[in-house]
């Protein structure tokens, strides 16, 4: 346990040090990446640990973001907005799970995709409130968290890191708990788990709900940190991205979501600044991972000898 904890604290310390030395452009990028990594951690709990391959997580991200955005727009506080975002993500995921978890495998993928698409279209339909694809900016007054002005680079990075640190450590505690072992068991052999007395439906529902909670926090955090919310974050694209991050970093590894988010974000950023090839980069990365490295970077490292990697 100590070795694992030291590794995670070292990663967090490294990120804190990075905040002090990064130039402005990368500063903003890293804050963005940290929020996306929180989202990917949520995705990892469902997909990486429990084996639930969802194509509908954008709904949980979008629900959290929209709830926080509308709250702040109405004059609510940022701290409450974060909590509200968490609740919205949790609620959306629970509702989705109650229905979608009656299916499995490919059907589960399509059902989650369809629910998320219906949610996205609903945001567009109520464009007068949600701002539709263009979204709406958040008032500066609502972007104050514990005395920090989130529109400033330094505080923004600090808050992003704080949210990420909590998410990372909660994830670590979760997957090393007895409940975490139950999730992995569900992924590895559902029938065996059932015959050990675990209820597959409620176990998976709990995993999806927790996953939705993380996604909702990420959505709310992203909106507050960058002062903007919009329906475009609920598109299918945003369901694919966390899958890509997790696959790249290593599904079912605690640090995989962060690693995948950092690498993929910079890869897409570089590709789209050179040419207009960002779509192809996402596509090629997905193909490459599925074909040649289905376990991702950290998953492969774990297989090749670093067995203790959580």
């Amino acid at each position: 346990m100590t070795r694992v904890l030291v590794l995670h604290l070292a990663v967090l310390a490294g990120l804190a040090a990075l905040g002090a030395v990064l130039p402005a452009y990368h500063h903003g990028m890293m804050a963005r990446i940290l929020m996306l990594a929180v989202y990917a951690i949520g995705y990892n709990i469902a997909f990486g640990y429990t084996g639930l391959l969802s194509l509908g997580h954008a709904m949980f991200l979008g629900a959290g973001m929209m709830a926080a955005g509308l709250w702040v727009q109405q004059g609510g506080s940022a701290a409450a907005a974060l909590g509200l975002g968490a609740l919205a993500g949790l609620g959306a995921a629970t509702l989705t799970g109650v229905l979608a978890l009656r299916t499995a495998g490919v059907s589960f993928m399509i059902v989650t995709l369809m629910f998320a698409q219906a949610f996205y279209l609903t945001l567009l339909y109520f464009g007068a409130i949600t701002g539709g694809d263009e979204g709406f900016p958040l008032p500066a007054a609502g972007r104050q968290l514990m005395g920090l002005d989130l529109s400033q680079d330094g505080p923004r990075y600090a808050v992003a890191l704080a949210i990420f640190a909590v998410a990372l450590l909660v994830q670590l505690a979760l997957v090393r708990s007895r409940f975490g072992r139950t999730l992995v068991a569900m992924r590895e052999n559902e029938e065996r788990s059932r015959m050990l007395g675990y209820n597959p439906f409620t176990t998976k529902l709990a995993a999806l709900a927790i996953s939705g909670l993380f996604s909702g926090v990420a959505g709310a955090g992203y909106g507050l940190l960058f002062g903007y919310v919009g329906a475009s974050f609920a598109t299918i694209q945003y369901s694919i991205l966390p899958m890509l991050y997790v696959l790249l970093g290593g599904a079912g590894t605690t640090l995989g979501p962060l690693l995948g988010a950092v690498l993929m974000f910079y890869l897409i950023d570089t590709a789209s600044s050179l040419t207009e090839l960002s779509l192809a980069v996402i596509g090629a990365a997905l193909l490459f991972l599925v074909l040649f490295a289905p376990k991702g970077i950290l998953g492969t490292l774990r297989d090749r000898g670093i067995r203790w990697l959580p």
Binding site: R181, V184, A185, E188, N189, E191, R192, R194, M195, L196, G197, Y198, N199, P200
Partner: peptide, 27 residues
């Protein structure tokens, strides 16, 4: 349902071995 019967004390071991092949014996 099966999982509830297990909780009541009826355990079943499979004819065709069904273990968590990817996990350790301890897990």
């Amino acid at each position: 349902p099966a999982h509830a019967r297990v909780a009541q004390g009826i355990a079943y071991t499979f004819q065709i071995t069904s273990i968590y092949a990817g996990l350790t014996v301890a897990d």
